[in-house]
């Protein structure tokens, strides 16, 4: 197979490709058309694009093949879809792009999207968001559910998309650049508490997988692995990927928020608060 073949999707999904193309196109168009002083800096643009491309890469390249037939690669896929990709996208602060499009959407469309706003606010409730975040991980890793999800193409796509969308919601709630002091954004203390709380159950689940004696996820046994690897090794690596990197993401996010909170404190002490609601980070 030619080298370029690895970049082609294993399971071609036109809807997924369309979604990613639309997101990148909307982002690029907004960048070109928005006034200079609103435009995000190069680092933020790179963070956004890398986040999007990472998610695309694990869904629509050869990586997806290995995710379907190796447990630990599957865990890596979800680490990117639910953590790293959305983490980068939220951290890149695409708020100016949202505003750009909000101003250009017709009022009819905006009012038609109202119900979506209600669902959004419900899902972003500080009690519901962390439960949803951890709950989805537990749901799709429930052995019986996981078995079905790996057997059914529809469920498999539902699983990956739900992880990606929930990842975006959660990390956006955590990294919302609007200052809690001057807006409705969640306070930094609450955000840090949520980050610490979601790390715990993920660590417990990962440790449980790592220390399980038997085969927890035998679907990879039943369906054949992509290459001959001892099932115990596969499960051990997958468990470690569930256990350690997500916990580190929480720690990293807490550090970023601490820094942001300290900056805002300093600014509040020296200057009037930032009413424009845009912080740089």
């Amino acid at each position: 197979m030619p080298e370029l073949g690895v970049l082609l999707p294993y399971d071609y999904s036109p809807l997924t490709i369309l979604a990613f193309v639309l997101v990148l196109a909307a982002y690029g168009y907004a960048l070109l058309r928005m006034p200079e002083h609103h435009r995000p800096g190069a680092v933020r643009i790179v963070a956004f694009v890398v986040g999007v491309l990472l998610c695309y890469g694990v869904m629509q390249t050869r990586f997806d093949y290995y995710s379907q037939y190796m447990f630990f690669v599957h865990r890596g896929q979800h680490l990117i879809l639910h953590h790293i990709g959305p983490f980068l996208i939220a951290l890149s602060n695409p708020l100016p792009v949202f505003r750009f499009w909000q101003q250009r959407l017709s009022p009819v469309l905006v009012s038609a999207l109202k119900p979506l706003g209600l669902i959004y606010r419900l899902l972003q409730h500080p009690l519901i968001a962390p439960i949803l975040f951890v709950g989805l991980i537990y749901f799709w890793l429930w052995p019986a559910v996981h078995f079905d999800a790996m057997l059914s193409r529809d469920l498999y796509w539902l699983m990956n998309w739900s992880m990606l969308l929930d990842g975006l919601l959660f990390w956006w709630l955590m990294f919302d650049p609007r200052s809690p002091a001057s807006g409705t954004a969640l306070g930094y203390g609450k955000r840090m508490l949520i980050l610490a709380l979601v790390a715990l159950p993920q660590m417990i689940l990962g440790a449980w997988i790592v220390f399980s004696r038997g085969m927890v996820y035998d679907v990879y046994e039943v369906c054949g692995r992509a290459w001959p690897m001892a099932p115990e090794t596969d499960q051990l690596l997958g468990g470690l990927l569930t256990w350690i990197p997500p916990a580190m993401m929480s720690v990293l996010a807490i550090l970023i928020l601490l820094r942001r909170a300290m900056h805002e404190d300093e600014r509040a002490a020296g200057r009037p608060p930032n009413l424009k609601g845009e912080t740089v980070s």
Partner: peptide, 12 residues
């Protein structure tokens, strides 16, 4: 065919 039934095979 194996993809249709969500399984795979590989050679050593």
């Amino acid at each position: 065919l194996t993809k249709r039934y969500r399984t795979t095979f590989g050679y050593d």
